[in-house]
Amino acid sequence: MGELLVVVIVACEIGFWVVLGAGLLARYALRRPKLGAVLLVCTPLVDVVLLAATVFDLRSGGEAKPAHGLAAIYLGVSVAFGHSMLRWADQRFAHRFAGGPPPVKPPKHGAERVRHEWREWFKFVLALAVTGAVVLLLTHVVSTPERTQVLRGTLDVMTLVGAIWLVGWPVYYSVKEAGRKAAGRGE
């Protein structure tokens, strides 16, 4: 079912954006805020569907494949960044359809940029933790280490991405801001 699981992952991603779009459309374009709220609250159900499909596949004798690791990553990222994605889309819909203020843009520089980068990176750490929990769950469900070896590689990839992100953004902007402050004090 590894290939079918990829289809389920893609369907869940599409489903997330469809439910999100329907919720925002109901809230702003149709002016039905309660219906919009109900639809927006339903977005995590997409994650439940993916988790159930992944567990079902492994429980029915399937061997873990990269698609199972991708499902774990999807779930981790969805939990950690889902609220931010909802807020991002909501700001744009409110601005476009309800005369709301322009969407908030991330800060370009300074201490605010540093805080932003660290906050985003810690969301990634949460995504990694949730991915790890899903990998542990899937490993427990299968209870045969040979059948779940590929899942451990998922955490290696996530850790590498996290290390690159850490150095490339939070650390980079922290050092840049510290240098800017030091240069300002020297004048």
Rank of each mutant, 00 (worst) to 15 (best):
Q91G: 02
G69D: 00
S78A: 14
D90S: 13
K105A: 13
L86D: 08
I73D: 00
W88P: 00
G100V: 05
W88D: 11
I73R: 01
G100H: 06
A94S: 04
A94P: 02
V77I: 01
I73C: 01
R96I: 05
L86S: 09
R87D: 05
H95L: 11
R92Y: 14
K105I: 02
P103S: 04
P103L: 01
L86Y: 12
D90W: 11
L86E: 11
A72V: 04
H83M: 15
H68C: 05
S78I: 04
F97T: 08
P101Q: 10
G100A: 05
G100T: 02
Q91I: 03
A71D: 00
A80Q: 03
S84H: 12
V77S: 00
Y74E: 04
G76P: 12
L75I: 11
A98F: 06
G69Y: 00
V79L: 15
F97Q: 09
F81K: 08
F81N: 08
Q91D: 05
G99K: 00
H95Y: 14
Y74N: 00
G99R: 02
H83P: 12
M85G: 08
A71L: 04
G99F: 02
H95D: 10
G76L: 13
L70T: 08
G100N: 05
K105F: 06
P103M: 02
A89G: 03
P102G: 10
I73N: 04
L86K: 14
F93A: 14
R96Q: 09
L86R: 14
P103Y: 06
S84I: 06
K105T: 09
P102C: 10
S78G: 15
G99D: 03
H83L: 15
